[in-house]
Design a protein around this nucleic acid. Sequence first.
DNA 1: ACCTGAACACCGTTCAAGT
DNA 2: ACCTGAACACCGTTCAAGT
Lengths: 213, 213
Amino acid sequence: MVSSTAEKPKKKRAGQYHHGDLRRALIDQALQTIDREGAEGLTLRGVGDALGVSRTALYRHFSDKQALIAAVAREGFRTLRIALLDAWERQAHGFPGLEAMGEAYVQFAIAHPSHYRVMFGRFVESGLRDPELIQEAGAAFQALLDALLELQREGLARPDDPPTQARFVWSVVHGVAMLAIDGQLRECHDNGAGLIEYAVRRIQAAITTAVRM
Amino acid sequence: MVSSTAEKPKKKRAGQYHHGDLRRALIDQALQTIDREGAEGLTLRGVGDALGVSRTALYRHFSDKQALIAAVAREGFRTLRIALLDAWERQAHGFPGLEAMGEAYVQFAIAHPSHYRVMFGRFVESGLRDPELIQEAGAAFQALLDALLELQREGLARPDDPPTQARFVWSVVHGVAMLAIDGQLRECHDNGAGLIEYAVRRIQAAITTAVRM
DNA sequence: ACCTGAACACCGTTCAAGT
DNA sequence: ACCTGAACACCGTTCAAGT
């Protein structure tokens, strides 16, 4: 930190002349709108109005609309990673931990479908301009990779190439999640709960070293 | 067919006063645009211009833009189903046939990423207004279900609830496909080819009755 | 029946101007 | 430094009017 002039960072009270942290408020408002109305329902005019601010005010904090969405996506990967780690710890690791991670993953997507879609849509384009998004996504993936590495070390999971094994597991839960939020499981009377349970069991069967499930 | 008046169905030559089958031309043009520029690049003005027709001409054949997209999605499920059945037959059924189906599935998505996204995006909303879309998607799913039923009958696949088993397999290939086209496999030096191979093998391990893979 | 062109109500983004 | 309001170039959709 370079010692600056006499000016301390101003902490303006909320509701006063604009915001103390408009950037933060914009992200929160965008996330709220996305969760409620979907990403298509997100307009710069809308977030501006909701915050009592001009529709062009956000250009002081984000290069464009896509950058705002990328920031929302970043938050999503962070929340997801924490949920995964929490599930893993709560079940004290092992295959029960991996199952819990899988269920937590799909539940996050079902609870926040629009947010989840935003995390994966336009990922490449957004990632090129927002390295922190890629970093945050990588951290979430790392949580899964670490779990599998531990299972392999304990001789529970097959000693396959770890990144490939992790991407396979990711594919299953991502596939279930996407099918669920896109309405492709509408014929399941239980709204996909049975499939999630089946899927995590079959993941275990697919990567275990044990002879029988 | 009710015998009509003296008027035979006019077969206008292309390039002449509009089209003999504008509906067909609109779908083809929309598909081409989607494949080339993505679904966001699809504008009614664009397809109209490309066909030498007003931008509102399509309202004679489709209720709105979403209905046009739904028609494109329908074509996609049809093409996908044919590709799956072809792969299944070419490998003479069995697990080799199932593996080939899985690879054909992912390859379709990678070859036509925007088309594939359109097939699953807004599926519910589109399906409510376009029952044929749901029917075509169901037919594609049925191809997979039939394959698994045969494997179960032969004692090769576990006798689990067939729709659940089919949705699980679908989730894996859908997950791989979505991750691939959304750029989440960019760190794979082989662009995901190894993952696809690994995934179809692990699917087999997950649903087989055999003790060892 | 089928298509057009003007009009309408929206967008994201730019930019000169305010404080 | 930060924000505004008018303006610009786009959208999808509607509708009276043409043929």
